[in-house]
Each structure stands twice: as C-alpha cells, then as structure tokens.
Amino acid sequence: MSPERSVFGTLVDAWRITEKDLLVELRTKEIVLTMGYFGFLVVLIFSFAFFQDGATISSVASGILWVSIAFAGTLGLGRIFEREREGDCIRALLLSPIPRPSIYLGKALGVLIFMLVVEAVVVPSVYFFFNLDLDRTRAGVLLLTVLLGTLGYAIVGTLLAAMLLRARTKDVLLAVVLYPLILPVLIIGVKATGILVQPEPVWNELSLWLRLLGLYDAVFLVASLWIFEPLLLD
C-alpha cells in the first residue's frame, strides 16, 4: 500500500468494504430485517401510547420518528460490528492492505445504507400511524432531513461501535456512549421534522436547522477520520 493514496483510491477501497457488508447482508438479511421489524414495533407501541379520543396525536410524530430511528440504529450498529468480531474478522480487515480511513468510510456507508432501508419502513409507519398529511415538497424535505440526520448518526455511530469492538459489556456501553453524542442530531431532527409537519412550515427556520445538521455531519466526519486510526490500533 502506498502511503500517497489518492482520494479516489481511498473511496474505491471503502466501497469494497461496503460491498462485502452488503453481500453478507443480502445472503442472510438478518440485520435489516430485525432492525426494520424492531423499528416498526417501536412506532406501533408509540402510536398506541399516544392514542387519545379515537385518533393518535400527530404533534408527537416528529419525536417518535427520531426515537425509533435511534433505537433501531443502535440495534443494527451493534450487530454489524459483532459480525466482524466473529472469527476475528476485524484482525484480517486491519491486516489487509486497505488504508484505515477506507475501512471506516466503508463501514459507515454500510451502516448508512442499512439504516436507510430500515427508514423506508419506519418513516411510512410514522406517516400512517400518526395521520400525517404532507404535500410533495414537504415530503421531499422530510426525506432530506432524515437523510442528513441518518448520515450524522452513521458517522458517529460507526466510530463508536468500532471503538467499543474490543470492550467488555459493549452492547450496554454503545447505547450509553452513543446517545449523548448524537443528542444534537436528534434535537435538530425533531425540531426540523416538527416544523415540516405543520400545515404552514417556517422555511427560514427549517433551512437553518438543515444547515446545522449538515455542519454536524461535516464536523464529525472530519473528526472521525482523524481519530479512527489511533483508536483501532490497540
């Protein structure tokens, strides 16, 4: 491996890692199915919990959406790295002539794709169970919000899950460590979605939240790429 690897080469290597994860997943469909079903169940339980006077309260929908995404995401994150630990695959991965940033990016992209598939279940569930009514523009912006939020979640979540790979009691620790750090994503996501589900959204405020979300993604992507290597060298 030449140290002067081009950006393109790094991305190609990252895609190889993602491809491997997708291939393994396509054969078993284990992560996506369990995560998706779990996400659906969470939405269902919430819709039951907030059912009053013959209808589910729509105003809590934005909170429910992000809580469901966060819960389902933790489940998947733990599993996607557990797979690498079985048979000590992570050691093989680290020994392979692939630069560390590529491993991180590849894993993060995999997490992002899995989560987007799961959200294809969760978002419609929230939409129907909570009686939302969105026109085409607002639905499009909602998808953008979810995409940006999930990106931030995948960026931070992948780093933390990788960090905790060799830790004892990592399943418990992942949730404890992840939620404080992604609190900004959840808050911004909830606020932005809350604006979107109103009949007359305040576009100015919404664009502010979306820019903040983009900023979060960028800041943490840079920070993660920077500290991923020393954290995995243990």
Partner: peptide, 15 residues
C-alpha cells in the same frame, strides 16, 4: 466506559 470497558478503556475514554 473507564469503569466497565476493560483493557482498552483508556483508549476509548480518550476518543
């Protein structure tokens, strides 16, 4: 993490 993560706790805590 420091209390429960075991041998690699210091590195994780630093990160």
């Amino acid at each position: 993490v420091r209390a429960y993560a075991g041998p690699s706790a210091k590195t994780i805590a630093a990160g």
